[in-house]
Structures are given as C-alpha cells and as structure tokens.
Simulated assay, not measured.
Amino acid sequence: MGRITDTVKGLLIVNIIFFVGSLTLGNTALNLFALWFPKNDNFQIWQIVTHMFMHGDAGHIFFNMFALYMFGSHLENSIGQKKFLFIYFSAGLGAVGFQLLFTYFQFQPGYQAFIDAGISNEQILDLFRGTSNLNLSNYDINASEKTIENFKNAYHTPMVGASGAIFGVLAAFAVLYPNLPLYIMFIPVPIKAKYLIGGYFLLDLYSGITGQALLGPANVAHWAHIGGAVIGFITMWYWKKNSFNNRRWY
C-alpha cells in the first residue's frame, strides 16, 4: 500500500527488538514487560505500555506486524503522524482497559469464594506464589471448577502483543476508507474494508462473549482486540465527522 512511513518503520523495529530480546531473556522479559493482572506480584505500571511490544511467538508478531505494514503507512499518510500515533497508543490503552475489566470479572468470583470460605488475601496470594502449605480441603469453597479455573488463569496469564493497537488502526482505516476493496490471501474476490474489518471485529466479539475461538488459538485476548477497535473507530469517526470545523484535532 505504498511507501512505508518512518513512524511505522520505527514501530516495526521496536517490536522486533523486543521480540528478539524476549527470546534471549525468556521469563525475565515476560515478567518485566508483559502486562500482568494487578494482583500479581509481577505487575508494574510501565507494563501498560511495554506489553504492546511483547509477543508470544513468531506467528503472533508476524501477523501483527504484517497488518501494521499493510495499513499503518496508508493511514498515517492520510491523517498525519500525530493522529496516527494517538490512535495507535490510545487503542493500545483501550485494549488494556477492556481486557483488564474482563480479567477482573474472571478473577473476582473465585477470589470472593475464597474470602467467603475464610481464606485471607495474603493466604490466597501465597497459594498463587507456591509458598503456602494451606490445605484447601479444610475449607468449604462455594465455587465451581470453572470459576476456580478462571480465577487462577486471570492471575497467572499475562497480556502481550500489539493486537489492541493494530485493531485500532484497522478500525480507523475502515472508517476512513469504508468502501476500499481489500483482498484476503488466497481469495481473489475483493471485499470492502468496512465488511472485512467489521466482520473480523464481530468474530472477536462473538469469541469474547462465548469463549469459543473461531479463528486463531484459544488464548487470544479477544476483549483487547475489541477495546482497541472501539477506541480506533470512535476516534476516527469523531475526527472524520469534525474535520472541517473548529473542533478539528491537531
């Protein structure tokens, strides 16, 4: 889609550097730069930004960077560097908000069941840390196995990837160029951007609500995708709507 911009090139380079570094440092990089649930000992405030540059594997970073390469430069050339970076990072932060809210709803029922059973907050954290010899069979924990599984997964599963920011870019692109024909690999039929990107959003929404992954692995942070897309869509819709009046954003 034309010449790659310096901004997109810079984002690609930083993401690749983080990925190579994470391969070298392993769990140390994951513990420091992935976004952990705030109750987890690994959580640090800077992870709200650094997680956007971390990726789980080669396939994860390839598809994110491919989407950034395909759509990022075209979008930046249309709206300018400042607006592009605003969409990219605000969508990434929106992804954090949506995913953490979803994780909280997974964590809280199990946590409350443990508290109601008479287990203290510190004892719960010691269980997660593996430093507790507490015998759970001595407690009446009124929660299903699924609730307990969600509770544990929320604590132990970090969030990584630029997907939220990328979905913001895709949504903004669809707002700006809704009728631009796009091609999917191996399918020689053009699909308008609003249908292709909108359809992908609906698939993520379905997976986020039902927990059933229709595309990709089961551990995809669907609510992060949704959050990034919502922020990108709203921001670009507002700018497009007000691009010729005194509320224009610079």
Rank of each mutant, 00 (worst) to 15 (best):
I191G: 02
F84V: 06
N77K: 13
K240P: 00
P158A: 07
P178Y: 04
L182W: 06
W239G: 05
S137Q: 15
I115N: 11
A213M: 09
Q212K: 15
L214V: 14
M185R: 03
I48M: 12
F37E: 06
Q123H: 09
S163W: 13
G59W: 05
Y88Q: 07
I119E: 09
T210H: 03
A113L: 10
I148D: 07
N179Y: 00
M65K: 04
Y104L: 13
A67P: 00
T28G: 00
F114Y: 15
W46Y: 13
L127I: 10
N219K: 07
G228P: 01
A171L: 03
A143H: 11
F102R: 10
G211D: 03
M1I: 04
K241P: 02
V8H: 05
A113T: 12
G110F: 11
G118I: 14
T147P: 08
G56Y: 10
S22T: 11
M185I: 08
A213V: 00
F37W: 15
M70C: 03
W249I: 14
P190H: 03
N27M: 12
Q108C: 02
I197F: 04
V169R: 02
Q81N: 11
N242T: 02
A213G: 07
V160S: 06
S137K: 15
Y139L: 06
G211T: 08
T24C: 12
K146A: 15
L100N: 09
N138C: 01
I119Y: 14
D6M: 08
G199M: 01
V14Y: 09
N153W: 10
F62H: 06
A154T: 06
F173P: 00
T147R: 07
P158C: 09
W223C: 02
I124A: 07
W237I: 00
G21L: 14
H225Q: 08
G199E: 01
A117V: 09
N242H: 15
M1W: 09
F186K: 09
V160F: 07
S90I: 14
A58V: 15
N150T: 00
T24L: 15
M65H: 07
T103C: 05
Q44S: 13
G118Y: 13
H156V: 12
F107R: 11
A193N: 00
G59K: 03
A29I: 09
P109Y: 04
I184F: 02
K240T: 01
D41E: 13
P217D: 11
I141Q: 08
F105G: 01
F62C: 06
I79D: 03
T28Y: 15
R248F: 01
A29S: 13
K194D: 01
F71C: 00
N27Y: 12
L23E: 12
Q44I: 09
Y195A: 00
G21K: 13
T103F: 04
I197R: 00
M65S: 11
K146H: 06
A213Q: 12
G97E: 05
G2R: 07
